[in-house]
Measured scan of single mutants.
Amino acid sequence: MEVRTIKVFTTVDNINLHTQVVDMSMTYGQQFGPTYLDGADVTKIKPHNSHEGKTFYVLPNDDTLRVEAFEYYHTTDPSFLGRYMSALNHTKKWKYPQVNGLTSIKWADNNCYLATALLTLQQIELKFNPPALQDAYYRARAGEAANFCALILAYCNKTVGELGDVRETMSYLFQHANLDSCKRVLNVVCKTCGQQQTTLKGVEAVMYMGTLSYEQFKKGVQIPCTCGKQATKYLVQQESPFVMMSAPPAQYELKHGTFTCASEYTGNYQCGHYKHITSKETLYCIDGALLTKSSEYKGPITDVFYKENSYTTTIK
């Protein structure tokens, strides 16, 4: 009895394709271990004539594949690729409408935090270190965002349907971005203890939790000093293409032309909904596939993004 075979390709990165001759009487799992086709788990399936010449994702289970996976995804987590594939199996079914010149995501599976993050990423200057993220990001900007969303979920250790947080998501993504040249110098002034300067680099240099107003941050924000008295913390120097200011959701007025974009969060910790506000020729609110415009805006804002380049204080 002759062994019926077909020729397929296996890959971990969709760049390096490895030619395989597979036995049609055995499952993919018996031949390769966990195997995925377009995100779908085909591990328990036997090869079919229609699979001839198709590319299958496999887990990096030998040295060659491990090197290829690390170079593309910059992670050695053995569960990463499987999590990416199972997320992709959902995100490829989502709709990605162009809204006001940006790629958004039609609401499904509690994905409003991903839509808000995706919209924000198209408006701030950011370059990702893992080629996987950078490639998928370019495709997302062009309207094909399924891979990018699935990668975000995998890097953030999230599953489809789980509630997510924009600030946490951005923080994970910033860790995989090139923020080497970003720098922030802060000064804390206390009447009792004097003053202390701190220099922050990388992710810490672009994120701040405690106030939404970048102007206020430049002037000074009140913080408790270690001595128990009130101290003032203010920005001395900022070198970065953008800054992200966050605070627990509270009524906040966004003035046209003073910011790049913002995240609105309605609801409580267990259950809520994100919308995205962007400042173009007027203010726009993007909620999944829905767009509304207004000249002014007041609502429960939790993150505001500002364009920056270089700032030095005039406070002496």
Rank of each mutant, 00 (worst) to 15 (best):
L59N: 10
K127R: 13
T226A: 14
V203S: 09
D41H: 03
N268F: 08
S310M: 11
L153F: 04
L126D: 02
G39L: 04
V189R: 09
L290Q: 15
A250P: 03
M26Y: 13
D165C: 13
N14K: 11
H51C: 05
A132G: 11
D41R: 03
Y28V: 01
P241S: 10
T169D: 03
K7C: 15
T198I: 12
R83I: 04
I315H: 15
A177S: 13
Y73N: 00
G257Q: 05
Q122C: 04
Y28C: 00
M244Q: 10
R141P: 01
L200Y: 09
A231M: 08
S104K: 01
L212D: 04
G39D: 07
T55A: 13
E204L: 06
V236D: 04
K191N: 12
V12G: 10
Y284I: 14
K158D: 05
Q123W: 00
E308S: 08
H18A: 08
E162L: 03
Q216K: 09
E162Y: 04
N268G: 10
V236Y: 09
L114R: 02
R139M: 09
R66F: 08
F32P: 02
Y284T: 07
G82Y: 09
D135G: 05
Y172M: 08
K201E: 15
L290Y: 12
K218E: 05
P224C: 09
T313H: 15
F148H: 01
Y252W: 09
G143F: 01
Y274K: 03
Y155M: 00
V99C: 08
Q134A: 11
T282E: 14
Y234M: 09
V185K: 08
P300G: 08
L121M: 12
D135K: 09
V3T: 12
R83E: 00
K219G: 09
D303E: 05
G39Q: 06
T292K: 11
Y28G: 01
L17Q: 09
G299C: 03
S171H: 13
I152S: 06
V189K: 09
G299H: 07
H48R: 14
T266N: 15
A177Y: 01
G272A: 10
E71K: 07
D287A: 03
Q122V: 02
A87Y: 03
L153A: 06
K54G: 09
Y113E: 05
V206I: 12
E162T: 07
Y138C: 15
K93H: 08
Q251M: 14
T116F: 04
A146D: 08
D287S: 07
N16Y: 06
L235K: 07
Y214W: 08
G202W: 01
A140S: 05
I45T: 13
T5A: 13
Q238P: 04
G101V: 00
Y274M: 04
T169P: 00
V236F: 09
S104C: 00
I223V: 15
N129D: 09
V42T: 06
E308K: 03
K54Q: 10
L200H: 11
I301F: 03
E296V: 13
Y57E: 02
H51L: 01
W107P: 15
Q197E: 05
R184T: 07
Q238T: 04
M244H: 13
F305V: 11
P97I: 11
G161L: 03
T64I: 11
L235G: 02
L151E: 00
E52H: 10
S181V: 06
V206A: 06
F128K: 01
T278S: 12
L119V: 15
E52P: 04
M244N: 07
T282H: 10
Y311M: 08
T232D: 06
T5Y: 08
L81R: 05
G101E: 07
Y234L: 08
T55H: 15
E71R: 13
T91K: 00
S279V: 01
A205V: 02
S294M: 15
Q196R: 10
V189N: 10
T226K: 14
A117R: 02
L102Y: 08
Q195W: 11
R66D: 06
E239K: 13
K54W: 13
L235Y: 02
D77V: 03
G257H: 06
D23H: 12
A136E: 12
N309S: 12
C261Q: 04
K44E: 15
Q123I: 04
P300I: 14
F32I: 10
E296L: 13
G272W: 10
Y36H: 05
I301V: 08
Q123H: 04
F128Y: 07
D63H: 10
V203P: 14
M26A: 10
Q123G: 03
G164T: 05
I152L: 07
L118Q: 03
K191E: 12
I124L: 10
L200A: 13
K127F: 09
I105N: 02
F70I: 09
Y269N: 14
T10P: 07
N147Y: 15
C112S: 15
K219L: 11
K233Y: 07
G101W: 03
T260Q: 13
T27Y: 15
T55Y: 06
T11I: 06
K95S: 13
N157S: 07
G299A: 07
M26L: 14
V166A: 14
S263G: 04
V185Q: 08
G29V: 02
S86T: 06
G202M: 03
C227T: 02
S240Q: 01
E68S: 05
G143T: 01
F174L: 11
Q30E: 09
K307E: 14
G161I: 01
Q197D: 06
C182N: 04
C227W: 01
Q270C: 11
I301H: 15
T169V: 11
K92R: 11
I223P: 05
L121E: 03
M209G: 06
S295D: 13
L212A: 07
A231T: 04
Y73L: 01
V58F: 04
P78A: 14
Y28H: 02
F242Q: 11
F305P: 02
T159G: 12
H276G: 06
A146M: 03
V203C: 09
N178W: 02
S171A: 14
E125N: 10
S246R: 04
G53L: 12
C225P: 03
V22R: 01
A205Q: 02
N61T: 13
K106T: 13
L114F: 01
Y252L: 09
R66Q: 14
V236C: 05
L81N: 00
T278G: 03
V12D: 13
T312Y: 13
T120G: 09
K275H: 04
T314V: 10
L235D: 03
P300W: 12
K44N: 15
T199A: 07
D41S: 10
G164P: 02
K183I: 09
T282F: 07
D41C: 09
